[in-house]
């Protein structure tokens, strides 16, 4: 297969775009397409300070790399969740984030250690609180809280995450299966900084297939954590990705049409929140971050001892 631009040997074929590219033109296209996504959804402007949530995985490290190459002021933030399970998962992923940061001296990496700050790993918190959803639901809650806190305390204009189209399509699939209308309303490439205490969140990779972010990571020689999180094995989101991939194999562009069609429909007003559905937010009594019920937020309640 030949590059659509220069006829050199292609390194990737994107069937949904009917586009095959060589290494040089793929790396160039990837940067331009990210910039077009940022502009399309009015995510950021060059004078803004961005905080990139970095997990040590391919998507977030690739995002940090792209934003720096595009000239954005982008710092990284890594959250050490204390995931070990005999594999040293958090330790290895942290090393990947630190290794990347060491190669980019102009960028700063903020490291937040949950066990050091709060005295427990996510597995320990999940076991103590006996939460439904186990470590994964605790993980999501802690990451959202700490990312928001770091962005606000650091004076960043926005928080960028490496979610790709496969991630977003899998979440959308789950939300549609269960008709989670509240989540459908809020799912999008930009989560605005509504009210006090919430950082603006953006997903500049939301139009890339996951194989495209992987190809970029491999071609740029970015060292990332390859193994899946031990708690993610058997996760519903991975099962949804597999189902969508089967449909994509049958018909190229299915995932893209599913997700981008949803965004278009949302923009045209297919989903609207009534006033009663809009949650009223109150500042948490302890940390000040917004919460739907008066009192302590779900994050602060995690650290309360059982009566």
């Amino acid at each position: 297969m030949r590059c659509s631009k220069c006829h050199a040997t292609a390194v990737i074929n994107m069937r949904q775009h009917k586009l095959a590219l060589c290494e040089e033109h793929y790396l160039e296209w990837f940067l331009q397409y990210t910039q077009r996504t940022i502009e399309k959804y009015q995510m950021a402007t060059p004078e803004m300070r961005l905080l990139v949530a970095v997990s040590g995985g391919k998507d977030s490290l690739a995002l940090w790399d792209v934003l720096l190459r595009l000239g954005y002021q982008a710092d990284g933030m890594y959250i050490d969740l204390g995931i070990d399970e005999g594999l040293g998962y958090s330790q290895h992923s942290r090393e990947k984030a630190e290794h990347f940061a060491a190669q980019h001296p102009a960028a700063r990496l903020i490291v937040i250690s949950i066990p050091e700050l709060y005295g427990e790993s996510i597995a320990q918190v999940a076991a103590r609180r006996r939460r439904s959803g186990g470590p994964c639901s605790v993980c999501g809650l802690i990451k959202r809280h700490e990312m928001n806190r770091a962005a606000l305390e650091g004076g960043y204009h926005l928080l960028a995450t490496g979610h790709n189209l496969d991630d977003e399509a899998a979440v959308l699939f789950g939300n549609v299966l269960h008709w989670q209308t509240g989540y459908l309303l809020r799912q999008g490439p930009v989560l605005p900084a509504d009210g006090e205490g919430l950082a603006r969140k953006v997903k500049p990779f939301c139009r890339f297939y996951e194989r495209e972010t992987l190809a970029y990571t491999l071609l740029r020689g970015i060292d990332y954590i390859y193994d899946e999180c031990p708690f993610a094995v058997g996760a519903t989101s991975i099962a949804h990705k597999a189902i969508l991939e089967q449909m994509e194999t049958q018909s190229a562009g299915t995932k893209r049409q599913f997700y981008l069609g949803f965004l278009q429909a949302r923009e045209e007003g297919l989903f609207r929140a009534s006033e009663e559905e809009r949650p009223v937010l109150h500042p948490c009594e302890r940390c000040g971050q917004p919460t739907t019920a008066p009192g302590l937020c779900a994050f602060c309640r995690l650290w309360e001892q059982e009566p």
């Binding site: 997990s55 040590g56 995985g57 391919k58 998507d59 992987l214 954590i225 899946e228 708690f231 990705k241």
Partner: peptide
Amino acid sequence: LIAIVSGG
């Protein structure tokens, strides 16, 4: 062969 889904 590199798995596309990784991390978590």
